[in-house]
């Protein structure tokens, strides 16, 4: 009896210990998660604090002046917008149709396996490799030169695999009954896809597109190798010449501006950092809001 009582006490104590260590662990995990979030919020905060004083309307809307020690960064913002617009011109058609093939037509054969392997390889390929490819093919072989068009093509190649993947996922998240129902009503497969499935998948597809384009525009290496220009003070002329000329843009401006050391005052660099960051973050935020709205409305 006594032995049993002792055992009970031991067990009770051990249980308490286990409970306590479990509670301790959850606190530690929470701390880790807070550190993860805190660090990145710290970075964003620092850039906000240091960048905001530089930002005003003139900074965003004027060209650099006095050897970039004054004035604004409008030509670089414009360049980034141009780069993104072109990428959004080429990427959607190819990426979305490829994604539709993966989701609805591919099946499980040999060919889809190869395509999937290639897409996942491309998605994991460092952006600078795309830059090298663009340099060798678009800039030199096709003789496009360091130009806006070469940049568009390179950034599109980089975004297309990502868009295919997100499109496939968006289509697959639509319940199969949508397609089955439409086909059983006599629609052909494409009609059923277009009328019944794609409309429900559109927000997901758009989110993927925007995220891909935002990422492409923030990535400096491919732009550096195929389309970049350190800075520009010119006014934009809208003609075909613009396409074959290099274009000043935010990531290149930042990378080069700092490398050349001391040319651009630090305040302006922080301001440029903030502008680029907000440019990409607002795009991403927009995409994510669209998606979560859609999810809230979703009825399946």
């Amino acid at each position: 009896m006594a032995a049993l009582g002792l055992d009970d006490a031991n067990l009770l104590e051990r249980d308490l210990k286990r409970q306590r260590s479990s509670q301790l662990f959850s606190v530690r995990l929470l701390i880790c998660a807070l550190i993860s979030i805190g660090v990145v919020i710290g970075i964003i905060g620092t850039i906000l604090v240091k960048g905001v004083p530089a930002i005003n309307w003139e900074f965003l809307s004027h060209a650099p002046a006095e050897g970039m020690s004054a004035g604004g960064i409008w030509p670089m913002i414009r360049g980034s917008i141009l780069l993104m617009a072109g990428t959004l011109l080429i990427t959607p058609a190819v990426g979305i149709l490829g994604g539709i093939w993966l989701a609805e037509y591919a099946g499980n054969g040999r060919l889809p396996q190869v395509v999937r392997a290639c897409i996942s390889t491309l998605a994991a390929t460092p952006s600078i490799i795309y830059g090298l490819f663009g340099l060798a093919i678009f800039v030199l072989k096709w003789k496009l030169g360091t130009s806006l068009v070469a940049g568009w093509l390179t950034l599109s190649l980089m975004s297309i695999p990502v868009v295919m993947l997100t499109t496939e996922r968006a289509i697959r998240s639509v319940p199969p009954t949508f397609l089955e129902g439409a086909v059983s009503l006599g629609l052909s497969k494409w009609q059923a896809l277009r009328r019944a499935v794609l409309p429900s998948a559109v927000p997901g597809i758009i989110t993927g597109l925007v995220l891909a384009a935002g990422r492409a525009v923030g990535e400096a290496p491919p732009i550096l190798l195929t389309a970049g220009l350190y800075f520009s003070t010119e006014k934009l002329t809208l003609d075909f010449d613009t396409l074959s000329k290099p274009v000043a843009n935010l990531p290149y401006h930042l990378a080069e501006g700092y490398r050349q050391g001391g040319v651009i005052p630090e305040k302006i660099i922080w301001g440029t950092c903030l502008t680029l960051m907000m440019f990409v973050l607002l795009i991403n935020l927009g995409a994510i809001i669209v998606r979560s709205r859609q999810r809230a409305k979703q009825r399946w």
């Binding site: 149709l97 490829g98 093939w101 993966l102 037509y105 395509v115 290639c118 490819f133 297309i160 494409w190």
Partner: peptide
């Protein structure tokens, strides 16, 4: 036709992959 176009678009990823390997 649509099926074929979709397939061609998907094949661009294969083309890009082998293009990159070939150039490098």
């Amino acid at each position: 036709g649509i099926r074929l176009v979709c397939l061609l678009c998907a094949l661009i990823s294969v083309l890009t992959t082998f293009g990159i390997i070939f150039i490098l």
